[in-house]
Amino acid sequence: MEAASIAHADHHGPPAAHKSSRVEAPTLGMLLFIISEVMIFGAFFTAYFFIRVVNHNPWPASGTKLPEAVAGINTAILLSSSLTIHWALTSIKRGNRFGLKAGMVTTFLLGLTFLAVQINEYVHIGFAPHDSAQATVFYSLTGLHGAHVFIGLCMLLMVTVRSFRGHYSAEHHQGMEVPGIYWHFVDIMWVIVYTTVYVI
């Protein structure tokens, strides 16, 4: 490869960079980005910790209750979307374009449902962020995650569009694999948010 790049020692393009690691740049970039994301959630959980544990505030604030059941179903929905996107990935690895498209569409729809249910929950939950510090934490943690679901959905939409426009193949599917990693992260994060905010 170096030999090749020496051969055309002209200034019309950069020499091909040497690959000094097995991991692909976009994948690595996404993993590092996810570290940052985890830390963002970490900071919000710090707020949760101080307001619920350090302040000894009742959880949820007295006179309010959280819809564990609905949120539980919602959790199931989101988790299943992890499976469907995995299915999409395995399909395209086997060159099965239909599987890719179907998988992406279902994943997208499941994610959308989750978001819809979440928003509906906000509307009917009966307390506002400025009612109490607990409400503040509840809205910001679920809201932060909701924002991530939204970003994830945007990525999924791109991938879906591109897959319908005939991109990706058994050899080249990184463009959908990387957003997939992010989507899995969003799902796992929700499990943590759900357990800390609703269950315990």
Binding site: I40, A43, F44, T46, A47, F50, I51, V54, N55, N57, P58, A61, S62, P129, H130, D131, S132, A133, Q134, A135, T136, V137, Y139, S140
Partner: peptide
């Protein structure tokens, strides 16, 4: 620091109570 400034933004702009020590007994911020 991003998060800390989100908190401040939410407290000022939308009147969240991350840092409000006077919301009322049992519901104060820290």
């Amino acid at each position: 620091i991003a998060a800390s400034q989100f908190f401040v933004l939410l407290d000022t702009a939308l009147h969240f109570h991350f840092f409000d020590a006077f919301v009322g007994a049992g519901k104060n911020g820290n």
